[in-house]
Design a protein around this nucleic acid. Structure first.
Length: 419
DNA sequence: TTCTGAGTCGAACCCAAAGT
DNA sequence: ACTTTGGGTTCGACTCAGAA
C-alpha cells in the first residue's frame, strides 16, 4: 500500500461526517508491468477480437490461437507496422508479467502470475495470440463484478502516470456515476491525496503539483476514460474547498469495443446486443434509458428484490424509458437553475437591506453626534422650532430638549442639514 | 494604489532504478 | 562501481487580479 492509500483508508475509518461520502481507494489487484502504449494497444485489439469471436459463439480451448488480420491492425493503428516491430511488441507482451493477488477457495491469499499473452505468432496476413486462462475467463465473464477489467484500467493507468494523478483518477472514477464529488475541504483533500501539511503549504504549489497538473495529465492521457475539471470554493481570495466534476470520455483505445451509448451500463452488454439496441434508439436516448434502468434497479435492490440488470435494460430500452427520464432530468435541472436565481436574488436583497440598515445607523450616529455638540442655547432654540414645526402633543414636549421624540426629529434635521 | 493569494514557468536538488 | 535518467519536491521570479 502506498502512503496515499493508507491515508485514504484512514480517512474512511475516521468517518468524518461531511466527507462520509468520499470513498477510499479499494484494495487493488496488483498488476505489475511496464508495457508501452503501443503494446497495450495491440493487446486491447486482440482482446476485442477475442470477445467478438467469443460472443459469436466461437469457443476457444486453452492454448488455442486467436487471429487478427493485418489489415485490421493497420486500420486500428492508422499505419502499417513493420513485422519486426510487431514481433518485438508481442514478445514484450509475452514476457511482461501480470501478477495479481487472488483469494483461494480456502480463503488463503495467493499470488498468481502470467504474461499478458502466453504465445504469439506473426504471419504475413495475420497475427495470432494465445491468451492466458485468467484473461480468457475475464473476457468470457465480462459482466461479473470482479472481472479483472474493472480493476485493470485503473491499474494500467496507474502504472503509466505519476503519483498524484493515479490517486486523483481513482477519486474521480468513484464519482463518475454521480458526475461530481461533494465539496472537499482543503485539509481533507490533502489528507486524501497523502500530502502532509508542510508539503505544498501554499495553495499555488498544491494546485500546481497535486490538482491542476494531474488533472491536465488525466485529461490528456490516451489511457484515461474520464474527463475531469475542478472548481475552487473561495473565502475572500483563499481557496478553502474543492469540487471535481467528471464525465466518461468517449474513447476508443481502452475499452473492449463497447459503444459509448452503453457507458453507464453496470453489466457488460454483448456487442451483438448493443447493435440491436442501437438500431432501436439514438445514443442519447439509450444513455438515459440505461441511467433510468440503473435507478430502477437500485430501488429494487433497496426493497431486497434481486435485480437482473440485463432484463431491466432490455425493458427500459424497448419501452423507451430514456425519453421520459431525459425530460424529468431536464425539468429538475431547470428547477435547480430557477432556485439558484431565486437564492441569488434573496442574497442580493439581504445585502441591500443590511446596507440600508447600516446607512440609517450611520445617519443616526451622525445626528446624535451633532446633537451632543450643540451649545445649550442653540439646543433650546431648536427645541422651540420643533414645537412650532412638529406641534407635538404637550405630554411629549414636557421633557424639554431631552424628549425622545424631539431628539429623533433633531437628529434627522441636523444630519440632513449637514449632509 | 498597495497588498497579497493565486497562477505559471523554470531551475536546482534529491533519490532510486536502470543502464554500462 | 559509476553514470544516466526520470520522477518528485522545493523554490524563486514574475504576472495577474481581487480586496482594503
Amino acid at each position: 500500500m502506498t502512503r496515499s492509500q493508507n491515508m485514504a483508508t484512514e480517512l474512511k475509518k475516521t468517518g468524518e461526517s461531511s466527507l462520509a461520502q468520499i470513498k477510499a481507494p479499494q484494495e487493488l489487484v496488483h498488476i505489475k508491468h511496464k508495457i508501452t502504449l503501443l503494446q497495450y494497444k495491440y493487446w486491447i485489439l486482440m482482446l476485442r477480437t477475442y470477445r467478438e469471436l467469443y460472443e459469436d459463439g466461437e469457443a476457444f480451448r486453452a492454448g488455442e490461437y486467436c487471429y487478427l488480420s493485418m489489415s485490421a491492425v493497420t486500420e486500428a493503428l492508422g499505419y502499417q507496422p513493420k513485422t519486426s516491430e510487431i514481433e518485438r511488441d508481442l514478445e514484450a507482451l509475452r514476457v511482461e508479467s501480470l501478477v495479481r493477488n487472488v483469494l483461494e477457495k480456502d480463503g488463503q491469499k495467493a499470488k498468481e502470475g502470467t504474461g499478458f499473452i502466453s504465445q504469439w505468432k506473426v504471419m504475413s496476413t495475420r497475427i495470432g495470440v494465445v491468451f492466458p486462462d485468467v484473461l480468457r475467463e475475464a473476457v468470457e465473464n465480462l459482466d461479473r463484478k470482479d472481472s479483472i477489467f474493472h480493476l485493470l484500467n485503473w491499474n494500467i493507468f496507474n502504472s503509466f502516470t505519476g503519483k498524484y494523478e493515479a490517486v486523483l483518477y481513482k477519486l474521480c472514477k468513484d464519482y463518475v456515476g454521480v458526475g461530481e464529488t461533494p465539496w472537499i475541504p482543503l485539509e481533507k483533500f490533502r489528507e486524501y491525496m497523502g500530502v502532509k501539511p508542510e508539503e505544498y503549504a501554499d495553495f499555488k504549489r498544491l494546485n500546481q503539483w497535486v490538482i491542476s497538473g494531474p488533472v491536465k495529465r488525466i485529461n490528456a492521457s490516451e489511457l484515461s476514460d474520464i474527463e475531469v475539471d475542478w472548481e475552487p470554493e473561495r473565502k475572500q481570495r483563499k481557496v478553502v474547498a474543492l469540487k471535481f466534476r467528471m464525465r466518461p470520455k468517449r474513447q476508443t483505445m481502452l475499452d473492449l469495443g463497447d459503444h459509448p451509448a452503453f457507458r453507464f451500463a453496470k453489466v457488460k452488454i454483448s456487442l451483438a446486443q448493443q447493435n440491436e439496441y442501437l438500431a432501436k434508439a439514438d445514443t442519447e436516448t439509450l444513455e438515459y434509458s440505461i441511467l433510468r434502468a440503473n435507478e430502477y434497479a437500485e430501488e429494487q435492490e433497496m426493497k431486497g428484490e434481486p435485480a437482473d440488470l440485463h432484463k431491466i435494460y432490455r425493458k427500459a430500452i424497448e419501452q423507451g424509458w430514456g425519453d421520459e427520464y431525459r425530460s424529468k432530468l431536464q425539468a429538475a435541472e431547470a428547477k435547480k437553475a430557477k432556485e439558484e436565481v431565486r437564492k441569488r436574488a434573496e442574497a442580493a436583497k439581504a445585502a441591500a437591506d443590511l446596507e440600508r440598515k447600516k446607512a440609517s445607523e450611520a445617519l443616526r450616529a451622525k445626528g446624535e453626534e451633532a446633537l451632543a455638540s450643540l451649545e445649550p442655547e442653540v439646543l433650546q432654540a431648536l427645541f422651540e422650532r420643533w414645537k412650532t414645526e412638529a406641534s407635538p402633543p404637550a405630554v411629549m414636549s414636557k421633557n424639554g430638549p431631552s424628549s425622545v421624540a424631539f431628539r429623533a426629529w433633531a437628529r434627522k434635521a441636523l444630519a440632513v442639514g449637514e449632509g
